[in-house]
Design a protein around this nucleic acid. Structure first.
Length: 419
RNA sequence: GUGGGUGUAGCUCAAGGGUUAGAGCGCCUGGCUGUGGCCCAGGAGGCUGCGGGUUCGAAACCCGUCACUCACCCCA
C-alpha cells in the first residue's frame, strides 16, 4: 500500500496555486495599505496557551487540538488559531510599548482535529489581523472595513456581513441567567441538541437551525437588550461607522462565536457559494485576552479569514493571466548547446523562458511550447547554428523571422513586447 | 463522535446477475523524415478499493473493512 496524505490535510497543486497567490497578494497589499505589519508566530505553542485563551470548555480545546508531548514531557499543541500566539508574542516582546507594532497581520496553517467536509479541513489556512491598544469603536470599524474591502475587491459573490454585540465581560453571565429562565419555560419545544446546549452553552440554542427551535426562541430575550450602557454605546457607534462607510450589514442577535475570549463586537461574513460551512471570515473584539494571558490591560479587535473557503468562493475570472513565455526548441549536436546558452541569457534578463529537456524532435518541442502557452518559440537546430542565427516563431500568428544567434536574448525581448 | 452517499483507465463517467469490463477527455505513435493547435488512423493504460460470502456464473447481490465525500456537532 502506498503512503497517502493524512485525512483532512490537502495538497495544493500547481494548477490551483494561482488562485492562492492572488488571494494572498491582495490580503498582504490591503493589510499594508491599512497600516498593519506582518508578524510570523510559531505553528506550535504550549498547550496551556490555547486552553487559557480559547477557553478550557470550548469544543476546540476539549476535542479538536493536535496535542503531543515534547521529549521533556511538556505538553505542546499545533495551533488551532493564531490569535493566542499573536497575543503571547505581543506580551513577550513588550509590543505594547511599541508605537508602530499595534496593528499586526499574519498568514499560515491552523490545525483542528475535526471530521472534514466541504470547506472544513484538519489543516487549513488563515489570513488574520489583530489591532491592539485601542478600545474605541474606530478600531472595530477599521478592522471591519479591511475585511469587507478584502472580499469585495476579490469579487466574492453574495456576501453578507452579520454583526452582533456580546456585551462587556459582566453582561454575558447576567444575560445567560435571563435566557436560561426563558428556555426552561419552553423546554418541551426544543430539540435534543438544544437541551444539551442549555447545559453547555445556552447562547448556542439561539443559533440552532431546527425550525421548531427557531420558532420557540423567536421571542427569547435578546442579548443586545441586556447590554450595559457602555456596551450599547460602543455597538451603536460601530454600526454608525459602518453606515458612514456604506458597508452593508445585518444585525444578527443570534450570532454567537465559539471562542470564549470575545467581548462586545462580533461579526461574521458569509457567502452562499460554500455549502454548510458558509463563513469565509469572522472575528470580533477581545478586550480581556491580553490581561488573561498575563499582559497589561489591553483592548484588542481582530478577524480571521479562511483561505480555503475564500479560494472555493473566488470567481474563476479572478485568476491572473500568466506572464509571457519564450519557449526554446533546440535540438541536434550544435543546436542543443546553443539553445542552452540562449535559455540562460533569457533568464538572466528576467524573461520567463522554458524548454522541455526530454523533447528530441522539433515536433515534440512545438507541442510542448503550445501546452505551456508560449508566446514565442525560438527554433535552434544545427542549420541555424551554422548560419549563426535563430528562427523566432510567433505562436499565435505562426509568423517566423530570423535573428542573429549572438544577440538572440535581447532580440527576443524586443519581439516579446510586441507579440 | 453520529448519520447519509460513493468507490470501475491519469481525469469525468457507462456496463438491467451472463462472452474478452467500455466511452469521452488526456497520454504515446503515425499520416506530416525540421514546424504546435484541427482532422484521420493506430496504440499503451484495469487485481472494478480490500477481504470474505451467495451463485453454474459477481463490477453488480449480502457481510465486513478501508478510503473518499456530504451533513450533524462545531468552526475560518
Amino acid at each position: 500500500m502506498t503512503i497517502r496524505g493524512i485525512k483532512g490535510v490537502k495538497d495544493i497543486l500547481p494548477d490551483e496555486v494561482g488562485r492562492w497567490q492572488l488571494i494572498e497578494a491582495e490580503a498582504r497589499r490591503l493589510a499594508e495599505v491599512y497600516g498593519f505589519r506582518e508578524i510570523r508566530v510559531p505553528i506550535f505553542e504550549t498547550t496551556e496557551l490555547f486552553a487559557r485563551s480559547i477557553g478550557a470548555s470550548t469544543d476546540i480545546v476539549e476535542k479538536e487540538m493536535y496535542t503531543f508531548q515534547d521529549r521533556d514531557g511538556s505538553s505542546l499543541t499545533l495551533r488551532p488559531e493564531a490569535t493566542a500566539g499573536a497575543v503571547r508574542a505581543y506580551i513577550e516582546h513588550n509590543l505594547s510599548a511599541s508605537p508602530t507594532s499595534q496593528k499586526l497581520y499574519y498568514f499560515g496553517p491552523m490545525f483542528r482535529h475535526e471530521r472534514p467536509q466541504a470547506g472544513r479541513l484538519r489543516q487549513f489556512h488563515q489570513f488574520g489581523v489583530e489591532s491592539f491598544g485601542c478600545a474605541e469603536p474606530a478600531a472595530d470599524i477599521e478592522v471591519l472595513s479591511l475585511l469587507w474591502r478584502f472580499f469585495s475587491t476579490l469579487g466574492l459573490p453574495d456576501l453578507t456581513l452579520e454583526i452582533n454585540s456580546l456585551g462587556e465581560a459582566g453582561d454575558r453571565p447576567a444575560y445567560k441567567e435571563v435566557l436560561l429562565e426563558f428556555l426552561k419555560k419552553h423546554e418541551e419545544k426544543l430539540c435534543q441538541n438544544c437541551l444539551r446546549r442549555m447545559a453547555t452553552n445556552p447562547l448556542r440554542v439561539l443559533d440552532c437551525k431546527v425550525p421548531e427551535c427557531r420558532a420557540a426562541t423567536e421571542h427569547a430575550p435578546k442579548l443586545t437588550d441586556h447590554l450595559s450602557a457602555a456596551a450599547r454605546g460602543h455597538f451603536d457607534a460601530v454600526l454608525a461607522g459602518l453606515r458612514t462607510l456604506a458597508i452593508p450589514f445585518t444585525l444578527n442577535p443570534r450570532l454567537v462565536r465559539g471562542l470564549d475570549y470575545y467581548t462586545l463586537t462580533t461579526f461574521e461574513i458569509t457567502t452562499t457559494h460554500l455549502g454548510a460551512q458558509n463563513a469565509v471570515g469572522a472575528g470580533g473584539r477581545y478586550d480581556g485576552l491580553v490581561e488573561t494571558l498575563g499582559g497589561p490591560k489591553t483592548p484588542a479587535v481582530g478577524f480571521a479569514v479562511g483561505l480555503e473557503r475564500t479560494v472555493l468562493a473566488l470567481p474563476g475570472a479572478a485568476v491572473q493571466t500568466p506572464s509571457k513565455l519564450v519557449y526554446v526548441a533546440s535540438f541536434g549536436l550544435q543546436g542543443q548547446p546553443a539553445g542552452q546558452r540562449v535559455l540562460y541569457d533569457l533568464r538572466a534578463i528576467g524573461i520567463q523562458a522554458n524548454t522541455d529537456n526530454r523533447a528530441a524532435s522539433l515536433k515534440s518541442h512545438l507541442k510542448q511550447a503550445d501546452r505551456l502557452g508560449a508566446s514565442l518559440t525560438v527554433i535552434i537546430g544545427d542549420d541555424e547554428v551554422a548560419k549563426d542565427l535563430v528562427v523566432v516563431r510567433d505562436m499565435t500568428t505562426k509568423e517566423q523571422v530570423e535573428i542573429p544567434l549572438s544577440s538572440a536574448a535581447n532580440g527576443l525581448r524586443t519581439r516579446l513586447n510586441t507579440a
